[in-house]
Design a protein around this nucleic acid. Structure first.
Lengths: 194, 194
DNA sequence: GTCTATAATTTGATAGAC
DNA sequence: GTCTATCAAATTATAGAC
């Protein structure tokens, strides 16, 4: 069951990082949350906290990147899918009492100026998310530059709305932000259809 | 010159918090950056790290809230002012090599689930910024609900774009986000003028 | 692979001389 | 008010028994 322990450690890191950030989360706290012996962390991650954090970042990139098809497949159009994604995020935030938003945003801000390998890991995840969204907007008929700009704004808006929503314990921020993004995508689609 | 020392400590905290976050910044590092003796921190902030952090948060709220008039006074209209604000932020980010974005975003994410007094302090600052922007959009003739939604989206978009820009060391994200916000404000103004 | 004990540092905070 | 020395606790990481 070694694999299960390793997975539990990554999952525990993901949960604690999004609630307390990178520096605020100790290796012992991760081991305790994963119900794993402290030594197991260094067995599975000989590179220590940096290696573990890198794995948490990449795992979050895969998990949250996989949400894009969930919202965009079968939606009437990409504008509606965009709004649904923000509404879904708002509901999720309320359900967890604003504890679990993005697993890597706090880490990204902490390591951007202090840890180059981890900064690159977060940059790759954001680029992956932006790429997935760009493909959807392009598939809806938007020019590549327009699609990319909307995708960048989608991720930026959601990440920023998470910051305000967690601070205020009010998810209406996320819905307001989603409404603006909905209108932006709708306007781009209308313009492309002219 | 006691006041000067106190100000230097707050300024040092503001710089270190935005680069390393709350938990990642030690009191000794703040004292060193402020060129103040370690004991002076506890002389001026008997409440310790929490009291100092609260002051840093509130100071950032005043300083950055004062930027709103800078961009909106004298601008042709609020849509252009919105875009100018994002372009200015992008330029500032490039000039500091992506080190200094928002002083409280990282802190806000770290304390939201762990420190209720500091969470409230960050929430009040975000509300102050949103309020200042809402007043500008209302002053431009937009309905209160529309103005508020645009103001919330302004702050969310900028905060989120900061996260992506710092991670990727690319300020184009901020300009792309500003273009979307420009178009959103422009569309709202056009609709209100019908 | 699991688990404990511990090393070496660093943390926030305090005491007290000057 | 300034500054140093120091405390107790927490940190990352390692060694080594089982």
């Amino acid at each position: 069951m070694g694999a299960a322990t390793r997975e539990r450690i990554i999952e525990a890191g993901s949960i604690l990082f999004r609630r307390q950030g990178y520096a605020g989360t100790g290796m012992k706290a991760i081991a305790a949350a994963a119900q794993a012996p402290f030594g197991s962390i260094y067995h599975f991650f000989p590179g220590g906290k940096d290696e573990l954090t890198g794995e948490v970042i990449r795992a979050a990139g895969r998990v949250y990147g996989a949400l894009v098809p969930r919202f965009f497949d079968g939606a009437p159009d990409t504008a509606v899918a965009t709004r649904c994604a923000f509404r879904g995020a708002a509901e999720t935030l309320r359900d967890c009492n604003y504890a679990d938003a993005c697993p890597i945003a706090a880490v990204a801000l902490e390591v951007a100026s202090t840890n180059e390998p981890l900064r690159l890991a977060t940059a790759e995840v954001f680029a992956h998310w932006v790429g997935g969204l760009t493909a959807r907007y392009e598939g809806a008929g938007l020019a590549p530059a327009v699609a990319h700009r909307l995708a960048v704004s989608f991720v930026s808006m959601l990440e920023g709305a998470f910051v305000l929503a967690r601070a205020s314990k009010n998810a209406q921020v996320v819905e307001d932000a989603g409404e603006i993004m909905f209108e932006a995508v709708r306007a781009a689609l209308d313009k492309a259809a002219e």
